[in-house]
Amino acid sequence: MSISKLLATTATGVLLATSASAFAADTVYGKDFGNGSSHTTAINGTDVTFSAKTGNNKNKLIEGKFSYKPAQDGYQGVGVSPLKGSDVTVGEIDKNEWIFAEFNDSRVISNLTLGLLFDGPEYGDSKEKAFITVTYFDDTTKEFKLQAQGETTALWTGGFGTVSNLSPASDGLGGVWSIDNPFGDNAVKSFVLTSHADKSDFTLYSVTAVPEPESYAMLALGLGLVGFMARRRDRSNLYV
């Protein structure tokens, strides 16, 4: 094997090995957030910080803490509780409770999974709604809503994504909803989860992220340049 081909093969192997870790989908789970006010973890090669907040004015929120209730049907999500005083429901995101997620670098959210959204008569809850506000990396914002409409059906509004049921919304089960490509293919800077009604509460089960499409394009360009240089060197060697 020629030196140029050897270098090309080695470089391609390095790029592919890097891509296997940096370009694969990566998931974080609410059950791992602990009981503090914030939790920072790595997702797909960048840091994301989740924060628990409470208050009725989004611009004047105070620190809350992550809290949990027993898992239903094996799905353990995370909620929010105040640092002081009483809580409507420990382990859920109720009215005036918020979870913020802030990314250090651009990532596309490929899946968002929420739990404990019901549509009565379970627990006296009817058509519960989760509200999600997203800030993209171009600083535009968009609001999305997930509303339970039955034991295995829910409505996801916002123009992107598809929702499916992982655990029926009935007594003793999880009311767990998985939204694929929830915010489209645009890179996300942050998103916020909250409830606008006393009778609508839910949990954050998991978030899955992938690099934005431009990152894949850069990888393909890098591989193409390696191949081009290898072919160029091989041709020049013919005339030596």
Score class of each variant (00 low, 15 high):
Ile93His: 03
Val80Cys: 02
Ala52Cys: 14
Ile62Glu: 15
Ile93Trp: 02
Asn96Met: 01
Gly79Ile: 01
Leu61Arg: 03
Asn59Val: 00
Ala101Lys: 03
Phe103Lys: 05
Glu97Thr: 12
Lys69Met: 06
Ser51Met: 15
Asp73Gln: 02
Ala101Ile: 10
Gly74His: 07
Gly55Arg: 02
Lys69Ala: 11
Phe103Thr: 04
Gln72His: 08
Asp73Glu: 03
Ile62Trp: 08
Arg107Val: 11
Gly64His: 05
Ser81Met: 06
Gly77Leu: 04
Glu102Leu: 14
Asp105His: 09
Gly77Ile: 04
Asn59Ile: 00
Pro70Ala: 02
Gly91Lys: 01
Asp87His: 07
Pro70Glu: 03
Gly74Trp: 05
Asn56Ala: 11
Asn96Gln: 08
Glu92Tyr: 12
Glu92Pro: 00
Gly74Pro: 07
Leu61Asp: 09
Gly64Ala: 11
Lys84Arg: 13
Gly91Asn: 07
Gly77Lys: 00
Val90Pro: 10
Val108Gly: 09
Gln72Met: 10
Gln76Phe: 07
Ser106Met: 10
Val80Gly: 01
Leu61Lys: 02
Ile93Arg: 03
Ser81Trp: 01
Gln72Pro: 00
Ala52Thr: 13
Lys58Ile: 15
Trp98Lys: 02
Ile93Thr: 08
Asn56Tyr: 01
Lys60Pro: 00
Gln72Thr: 04
Gly74Phe: 04
Glu63Ser: 15
Ile99Lys: 06
Ala52Met: 14
Thr54Gln: 12
Ser81Tyr: 04
Lys58Ser: 14
Ala71Glu: 01
Ile99Phe: 07
Val108Met: 12
Phe103Glu: 07
Glu102Thr: 15
Ile93Tyr: 01
Lys65Gln: 15
Ile62Arg: 13
Phe66Gln: 09
Gly74Gln: 06
Lys69Tyr: 08
Ala52His: 14
Ser51Pro: 12
Lys65Thr: 13
Ile62Gly: 14
Asp105Arg: 09
Glu63Cys: 07
Asn104Phe: 07
Tyr75Lys: 09
Asn59Ala: 13
Gly55Cys: 08
Lys69Phe: 01
Thr54Glu: 15
Val88Leu: 10
Trp98Leu: 06
Asn104Val: 02
Ser86Gly: 08
Lys53Thr: 10
Phe66Glu: 07
Asp94Tyr: 01
Asn59Asp: 11
Asp94Asn: 11
Gln76Arg: 03
Ile62Lys: 15
Asp87Phe: 02
Gly64Asn: 06
Val78Gly: 04
Phe66Ala: 12
Glu102His: 14
Trp98Asn: 04
Val108Cys: 12
Gln76Thr: 02
Gly91Met: 06
Asp105Thr: 14
Ala71Gly: 01
Val108His: 05
Ala101Asn: 11
Ser51Leu: 15
Thr89Gln: 14
Ile99Val: 15
Trp98Pro: 02
Pro82Gln: 03
Thr89Lys: 13
Glu92Arg: 13
Ser81Phe: 02
Leu61Met: 12
Ser67Val: 11
Asp105Val: 09
Glu97Gln: 14
Ser67His: 07
Ala101Pro: 10
Phe66Val: 10
Glu92Cys: 11
Pro70Asp: 05
Phe103Cys: 03
Asp105Asn: 13
Ser106Asp: 12
Tyr68Leu: 05
Gln72Gly: 00
Leu83Arg: 15
Asn104Gln: 15
Val78Arg: 02
Glu63Met: 11
Lys84Ile: 15
Gln72Ser: 08
Gly74Arg: 07
Ala71Ile: 13
